[in-house]
Design a binder for these strands. Structure first.
Lengths: 212, 212
DNA sequence: GACATTTAGCGCGGATCTGCGATAATTGCA
DNA sequence: TGCAATTATCGCAGATCCGCGCTAAATGTC
């Protein structure tokens, strides 16, 4: 075991006041045929974003993944930090810092425990406690900005996919229709054609792509 | 005094492990005629970004301002969060989370204590400890992005200023020359002409502006 | 086999953006 | 009184972007 550090007053770091540190996560996904949606968990009679307190020497991203697993039965992917909420009056249990996160997870990974959690369109989340609406707004702004110029950066689509599937996904996330030609001109240079064609549908079969 | 919260195991929040929380800040400024620069403070024989541990129930921004005052004799302005560094091995004194910040401060406010601190061009900062180079990189990227479309959002220039002064400031921050006409076309609609003219220089006097 | 359906992509007019040169205005300086 | 210096603005040509319509290709269905 390593020696405990002592400062010039012979005090260890743990002799000074420290906050509890929590993580709260907006898990965003796009269910088939539905709108951009967020994962909520129930505590008592209210719905909130899943979160947990940081364990000893745990990485923030690991705490996020652990909270998703235990609070909703969900296997997260790659949480990204959004913001630290530091209002000491925000949590009436005590002095708590909360690090907000975003994790974008494909619908196919989201086999949730329905007794614990639900997935609702972001527009239907309603009033959430602890300033979680602000986290949700930041999360939505973040995913929209990342999808504006890059084809499916979070990998919501299974490989391979057609241009139309990609455009419909981007329209769902943007919350508005996109111009077909502009979309193709912007995205196609960033994709790799597999050479395969989609089958089984009426009409000319679509080319299949993968992210480059 | 409020009752201490107890969870279902009859434990208070402080019975669980908590990290020490620090703030580290990249203070950026533009000295007259010089390049985009950063404030460094000396600890022992090495230079680093100023930082401090969070005091009890202190806001992060307040901790930043306090650290600038005590570590460098500088009055900061409005710190913005950049990122939380959470590697438990980052600080050999113990388990420390560090919240990186950016504060953009006009040169005229920066009467620093030269025995404690110095201001150097960001390109000359050299190797900093504790991953502070990463913070500096993020800070530079952040200020560049905010100055790309908005005239002097941090208020580095005294009111009023000429278009040329504004452009020179933006060029210093961008680290590259900007087109005169494009710059004017982008910025002038966001400015308010005072109606006054600059005086004392050779040539046609320039119009003076303020941020709208 | 004719037809509807869907994908793919070309072409074009219009709008916008960009860099540059030219010019006028206004000042200090020789 | 000229002259250099600087600001401010216009005009233009080229580039790029954008939306739209049209056509061709390829498939399943009737």
């Amino acid at each position: 075991m390593m020696e405990t550090y002592r400062d010039s007053h012979d005090r260890a770091l743990t002799d000074y006041p420290r906050p509890s540190v929590a993580v709260d996560t907006a898990v965003l996904t796009v269910p088939p045929g539905a709108a951009l949606s967020v994962l909520l968990v129930r505590t008592g009679d209210e719905w909130r974003l899943p979160g947990t307190f940081l364990h000893e020497r745990e990485r923030l991203a690991d705490a996020v993944l652990r909270s998703l697993q235990t609070k909703a039965g969900v296997s997260g992917l790659s949480p990204r930090q959004l913001h630290v909420f530091d209002d000491p009056a925000r949590d009436n249990r005590g002095w708590v810092l909360s690090v907000a996160h975003l994790d974008v997870v494909p619908w196919s990974r989201l086999t949730i425990d329905e007794s614990l959690a639900k997935i609702v369109p972001v527009t239907d989340a309603g009033a959430l406690p602890y300033g979680h609406n602000e986290i949700l707004d930041q999360a939505v702004a973040s995913i929209r900005s990342s999808y504006a110029t890059t084809p499916d950066p979070a990998g919501l689509l299974e490989h391979p996919f057609t241009l139309r599937q990609l455009q419909q996904l981007h329209e769902t996330i943007a919350g508005e229709p996109l111009m077909r030609d502009s979309f193709r001109r912007a995205m196609e240079p960033q994709l790799a054609a597999t050479g395969e064609l989609a089958a089984g549908t009426v009409g000319k079969p679509a080319r299949l792509f993968a992210r480059a």
